[in-house]
Amino acid sequence: MNSGMAQRIPEGPVASGGMAERPDVGKLSVRGVGKIYDPEGAAVVAVENCDVEVEAGDFVAIVGPSGCGKSTLMNAIAGFDTITSGEIILDGVPLATPELAPRPGPDRVVVFQHGALFPWKTVLENVTYGPMVQGKLSGDEAHTRAMNLLGECGGLDRVADTYPPQLSSGMQRRVEIVRALMNDPSILLLDEPFRAMDTVSKTTMHRHLLQMYRVCRRTIIFITHDLEEAVFLADKVMIMTSRPGTIKKSLDVTLSRPRSTDMLTSEEFRELKLQLSATVHEEAKKAFARGEREQA
């Protein structure tokens, strides 16, 4: 498939890179999930009695301090790690219970904090990896779809033949989101994907992500500790606290879609951010007090 790579695919009439709209998939239920790490008898509770309900196609942000178990929850949903209690259900199918062996799948692909593009594959090879491995698409089909989707995500088709280390971190992260979308996932899991970025690149990334979300609407779970980012992107923000790691409160974001950067300065946005930040601080104080009591 190397020969065809250099040629550019003209922008076709197909919206969303040939991806079908799937408004009915991606309903996620996390019910009473707990995870106890027990390496040598010293049980460490990472997550306890955690409940999350996400409607199909919703954009949910989970905010919380470092070490509150956000990534543990994410790994459980992705099928990288086991849970010790509760259940996780995606569209009626149980993904994880304490009895089930962890089982990752192309229906829920993770975009990691530090990025995990394969440096030895070109952008195009990275992006077509999923469908090719699964044998879902032929080489040509995968190529066409990839070029369309890359093109729609800010002209990434122009770097299709480049190797990831030659791209800026912002572009790498966008390629990674495209790679996840290529699997036609029911749910997209973003684990602090813009964490290491400066404010300007972050804003650009938000624009791109919102654009992708508009083009191929999928359920998104977005983990972050940036409250402004959470309010700007999501329909619903969930607040996770430590000791134990669990979802304490959730806040509905009433901002309309499509979101624009103008909203960042609106009264409504400011109001929501204040409300969220007050709740986060209150919960953090409570968690801290619980921690003090445990220590005593």
Binding site: G79, P104, V110, A116, V133, N183
Partner: peptide
């Protein structure tokens, strides 16, 4: 080798042989 690479390959449906040849070897 980055765990993320192995996890990703698995979640995209790569078999252990494929992971060995296409992820571990290039790494």
């Amino acid at each position: 080798i980055k765990n993320e690479h192995l996890w990703l390959a698995r979640s995209m449906g790569a078999s252990p042989t494929r992971i060995f040849l296409r992820v571990i070897i290039p790494s």
